[in-house]
Design a protein around this nucleic acid. Structure first.
Lengths: 339, 339
DNA sequence: AAACTCAACGCAAACGCTTGCGCAACAGCG
DNA sequence: CGCTGTTGCGCAAGCGTTTGCGTTGAGTTT
């Protein structure tokens, strides 16, 4: 029923090996014969069986992409861009969505990608054990999040610089009580929240502002979490006049909480986010923009390059530019109340 | 280097066929031997090569999911849910992101999923030619968008009912000049915008409101498109006092446009969206909620069922519930101006 | 004209698994 | 006790490619 390489070979009056070579543009077959074969293959609607060819060749022409939540804007956007690069290069992508701890565990113990992929792009930060498991695959690895990791190509941003620009902006506006909504709920090895928190503390210290632990809350990187966190901050003895959220989603949650508390933004409270979410502009959110799609595409390109030249040296590290985007959720604090 | 089935067989003192059967829980191997084999396999860290087993069995344990834009909330959410169902059932998902016409064309001519997947879930509406190509794969097919299609299991919503509830809501508030931002830019065979438009027209007719073509604009299903469309509507001789957008993203674009025009929502203009986007609540958008993740999960489940019982009858059709969610972007029109 | 290259192609052996079939061994039956 | 079933397992033939190597014949060198 299904047309195989021998069918093509027979129809073209050559051997299967010649068909194989011709269709893949390998040397060892004359121009005319190759043309003939391509024509016949097209006429018969022949597509090589991926299973068979990867079994024989050891190459799968497939990239594994593991992501915590495809549904979230950040990951969806990275994936979108990466997928375009991969598919343009003739690679398919095998998607693993590892949101819950169980699926994540299942993935890393069963390792379904073993012998199924030529490389893997991880959009989540593997812990020591997990990255060891990935390395054991013996294929090029890349990630777009978190810091340096042995064996991984990482393309990311300067989290500290980004955070600095955001918090410094609030300081410059005159704010002294600056809260932070972090997304630190994840495992410790995720360096992003840590780096951003450090930068936050440093800017405060630099401005001579004493740090108040009551002005920090965890937002879990979600809208709901951000809302909860903001509510928490508002309950503090002396609530913040400005808030830096480590992601736009959390910032939007914060906006919602503020609205529910009948507080005006930026009159009563300023808020700045991180990411430049697609909808940040709609809500007028001041934020730190990072090239999200750009990171996905770049990581994909680097991975492909490693595939092409396996003898290349250390996996690279790329820092993408960030920039503060001023919109309408930040303003000087209202000159009222004590201090 | 890599451990194969024969390694396990040797170590367990049985034949490869017995290992194969034991590991897949097939009958024909005694309990103790099976236990032995599983233990040995675990100790050796054996994972069956997917290429080899699919070559031999013809089954791939992989589902192809084709989607227009993974980055967009709707598709990302559907995909997320579907992936969970698939992976829980032991299936991997091969992702094809077909946003641009070129990649789409490439996909449907090269058909890279041929012999690579056991089923495909399409999140885009294939035209006649494309769905014929999909059917030629000879595997179960499902989609979560658009209307009935021969050979496809489709789980969706009642677009007309959803639209009716939205537009009727505006009518009931007293609006007479009700604009619509549609997403009809796609190919004609996409029934969603068409169905929604019809329902829109019907409600107007039913309310005795004459239809004004100047109150319709195309928003391309994007935020930017929605903004453009709203700007267009505002330029009409008699601009609308309310707008129904066929997606929340377009509605949010409309909100942005309105803000730029210094018009207040809902005081000057009411707007209602469609989807109940994750952030609809943040901006207070009144909208028609549909179970997005639910549709993805349900479609995935139906696909798996077809895989289990291939002799089942016609592919099913499921209608998921919708409901109007009232928030803060709709209100009665201001009683001023002529009529 | 013999010896040698080299390009173009075919042969056949993998690749690692699944599965129909055959063959013991053992149980239950008349 | 022979006979038929049944259970548990091994044999070996695929599945559809890729690829190292061998063969052929035309072209080039001495």
């Amino acid at each position: 029923m299904s047309v195989s390489i021998t069918d093509v070979a027979r129809a073209a009056g050559v051997s299967a090996s010649t068909v194989s070579r011709a269709l893949r543009g390998q040397p060892g077959v004359s121009g005319e014969v190759a043309a003939q074969i391509t024509a016949v293959a097209a006429r018969l609607g022949y597509t090589a069986s991926r299973s068979a060819s990867s079994l024989a060749s050891g190459r799968t022409f497939t990239i594994g992409v593991v992501v915590p939540y495809v549904g979230r804007w950040f990951f969806g956007t990275v994936l979108d861009a990466a997928e375009h690069v991969f598919s343009a290069a003739g690679y398919d992508v095998l998607l693993y969505n590892l949101g819950s701890p169980e699926t994540r565990k299942r993935f890393f113990t069963k390792m379904p990608v073993r012998k199924r992929v030529d490389a893997v792009l991880s959009l989540l930060i593997p812990d020591e054990e997990e990255s060891a498991a990935l390395r054991s695959l013996g294929v090029p690895l890349a990630t777009t999040v978190g810091g340096a990791r042995p064996g991984f190509t990482v393309v990311g941003i300067d989290d500290r610089a980004g955070t600095e620009s955001a918090v410094r902006h609030l300081v410059n506006l005159g704010h002294r009580r600056i809260g932070m909504i972090s997304g630190s709920s994840g495992p410790q090895h995720w360096t992003t929240p840590i780096a951003r928190r450090q930068a936050y503390l440093e800017v405060l210290a630099d401005a001579g502002i004493e740090h108040d632990p009551a002005l920090e809350a965890d937002g879990d990187y979600t809208v709901e979490g951000g809302e909860r966190a903001m509510t928490e901050l508002l309950a503090a003895a002396r609530p913040p006049t400005a808030v830096f959220a480590q992601s736009d989603e959390m910032a939007m949650g914060a906006l919602r909480a503020l609205r529910r508390h009948r507080l005006r933004v930026p009159d009563d409270v300023s808020v700045v986010g991180f990411d430049d979410h697609e909808l940040a502009d709609v809500v007028g959110l001041t934020t730190v923009a990072q090239p999200v799609a750009g990171q996905g595409a770049e990581a994909a390109r680097l991975l492909l390059r490693q595939l092409d030249e396996p003898d290349a040296g250390q996996p690279g590290q790329v820092r993408m530019p960030i920039r503060l985007v001023l919109r309408e959720t930040t303003a000087p604090p209202r000159p009222r109340g004590p201090q």
